[in-house]
Design a protein around this nucleic acid. Structure first.
Lengths: 215, 215
DNA sequence: ATATAATTGTGAAATCGGTCACGACTTATT
DNA sequence: AATAAGTCGTGACCGATTTCACAATTATAT
C-alpha cells in the first residue's frame, strides 16, 4: 500500500473532498476545477491540487477534474465499498446525536451497537441501533474495532482498558480525559470544551485580519 | 498585548494545560515536571517546555513547575477572570449536550441563551439556559458575539448570515456545511462525520507503529 | 560538602504544511 | 488554423511547528 506517503494533513481533508465531490455528482455536474472546489470547501486551490497529486495525475490540464472519475477514485481510496462497523459507548445527549446521524449515507460507516448503564436505555433501539448494557461489552463487541467514547471523563480509563482488551484499534474520544493506550492503538481526541475555549482565546488575542478557518 | 507572538499551535493547547494543572492543584500536588505533564496530556515534554517558554521562564531548572504559580499564571493568561457569553443555535441532541456541559466550572464560558424553532423547546430552560425561538434571534442576541452552530446543514448559510449581521465574531460550526463569512470572522469547523471517517482512514492505511494521538 | 540525579530553557536542526508561480497541456474562440 | 483562455501538476520557497540535545541550575543523597 503506497498510502504511507500521504501527509496526515492531506488525509484529514480527504473525507471532506469526498463529500463535496459526491454532492457535485448528485447535482449532475460533469467536471470541476480546483478553484470551484476551493470555494466550496474553503481550502486553497493549490492545496487541493497538491493533495490530489499525491494520488497521481487525477485531472487534466486546461480541463479540471472529471467528477465521476474523481468520485470513483476517492470511493476506492477511502474504502467506501467496505462498511466499517463502529461501537458507541455512552448514550447521553452527545452519544444520541451520533446514533441519529446517518453515517451510512455518505461514509459507509455503521454504528452497529451502543452501550450504556442506564436501565431506561438498555434494551431500546435508538436510530436503528441496539443499546446494550455496558456490562455486556465483552459479550457483544464482536469484530468491531472502532469505538466512539461519549461517556463521563471518570469512566474513560476503565472503559478504554476493556476496549483495548477486546481488540479495539481505533478510538474517537470525546472525553476530556487524555486516555492511555498501547502505542499500536489510534486515538483521536475531540475535546469540546477545549475547542470552545480555544476559539474564545483566538478571538481575544489575535487581530481579526489574521483570522482563518481552522478545523 | 504581547500574545501575538504566541504560535497558534501553542494557543490551542493552553486550555488543555490549564485543565490538567487545575486537576493537579485539586489533588494537592505542589510541583510538576514537563515529563509528568507530558504523560498526562500526551504532548511531548519538549513541546510543553517550549510552549511555556513563550510566556517567560515559568519553571525552575532541576525542580520543575510550581503548580499553584502555574495555575495562577494560566488563569490570567486565559482570561479566566472575565466571562465570555455564548449563544447556542440548534437544540437537538448535540446542542442539548452543550447545554448540560458546565463550561463555567473550568472555563468561565457561559452559554447564555439557546435558539430553536421547535415549539416544544421554545420557552423552556435546559441546563439553566433559556431557549428562544429562532425568529427572535435579532431581538435576543444582545452583546453576545460567539455562537455554537448545532443545526442541520441546510440551515447553516441562512443562520450564519443573520449571526454575522448581528455582529457575531466567532462561530464554532458543527454543521457539515463549510459556511461563508467575511474575513474578519473566525470560524472553527468540527465535522463529526469527517473526524470519524478520517480515523477509519488512518486505521486502514497507516502502519500501527506510526500511530499518534491527534486532536 | 560533595557527588549524583533531575529538570528547565533554548539554539539548532529537522519536519511539516501551505502557497506562489509557471511550464505544459487542453479547450474554446475566431 | 491560429490564438486566447483556462487549468493542472509541481519545483521552489516560506513559515510554522516539533524535536533533539545540551549547558545551566536546582534538588537530593551520602
Amino acid at each position: 500500500m503506497d498510502h504511507n506517503k500521504i501527509p496526515q494533513a492531506t488525509a484529514k481533508r480527504l473525507p471532506l473532498y469526498y463529500r463535496f465531490i459526491n454532492n457535485l455528482n448528485h447535482q449532475g455536474k460533469k467536471r470541476v476545477s480546483s478553484k470551484e472546489l476551493s470555494d466550496a470547501v474553503k481550502v486553497d486551490s493549490a492545496t487541493i491540487r497538491r493533495d490530489f497529486s499525491y494520488f497521481g495525475a487525477l485531472g487534466k490540464k486546461g480541463y479540471g477534474y472529471n467528477v465521476e472519475y474523481l468520485l470513483g477514485f476517492f470511493r476506492k481510496t477511502l474504502d467506501q465499498d467496505e462498511t466499517t462497523d463502529v461501537a458507541l459507548i455512552g448514550v447521553g445527549n452527545l452519544g444520541t446525536a451520533f446514533l441519529h446521524y446517518n453515517f451510512m449515507k455518505n461514509n459507509n460507516i455503521l454504528i452497529k451497537m451502543a452501550f450504556d448503564s442506564d436501565p431506561e436505555k438498555v434494551g431500546t433501539t435508538i436510530g436503528d441501533v441496539p443499546v446494550y448494557h455496558i456490562a455486556d461489552l465483552e459479550k457483544k463487541l464482536d469484530g468491531v474495532n472502532v469505538a466512539i467514547l461519549t461517556i463521563p471523563a471518570s469512566e474513560a480509563d476503565g472503559i478504554t482498558d476493556r476496549l483495548v482488551a477486546e481488540g479495539i484499534t481505533g478510538i474517537l474520544n470525546f472525553t476530556p480525559a487524555r486516555i492511555t493506550v498501547p502505542e499500536y492503538i489510534r486515538v483521536h481526541h475531540i475535546d469540546l470544551a477545549v475547542e470552545l475555549q480555544a476559539l474564545v482565546y483566538f478571538l481575544k488575542h489575535y487581530p481579526l485580519e489574521e483570522t482563518k478557518q481552522l478545523d
